[in-house]
Amino acid sequence: MPDVRVLIVDDEPDIRATVSAMLEIEGYRVEEAANGADALRAIERQMPDVILLDMRMPVLDGWGFAHELRERGHRTPIVVMTAARDAARWAADISASDFVAKPFGFDDLVSAVERARPAS
């Protein structure tokens, strides 16, 4: 799976590190952002193929980030990554392509990213 770039947006450093390690071992190229604002700066540098997005974050939350992303005309697939029970509804709220509920294991995470990423 050559060159699938995933941006991980989560305010918990441990979550970012864990998810990064999980995806890297599967061969993805990973970048991290600590909140929505951080993520906007990251996509300016390089647009990822999939965005793994936590919803509740300080500075700019998942809703704010998704809104801004669509405002800028990007159709990048988003996978919502949350511990809340409302994961499905929140994913629909921001027109995300999928969601993965915390706590998730390898299979859940990888299959969600695989489903979301554009066919190459």
Binding site: E12, D14, M22, I25, A83, R85, A101, K102, G105, F106
Partner: peptide, 21 residues
């Protein structure tokens, strides 16, 4: 539930990573 799930994500993820390695 939410508060327990966040650390559990790390625990599960790291455990599976270790398992694979």
């Amino acid at each position: 539930a939410h508060d327990l799930r966040t650390p559990l994500t790390v625990v599960l993820g790291q455990a599976e990573l270790l398992e694979r390695r």
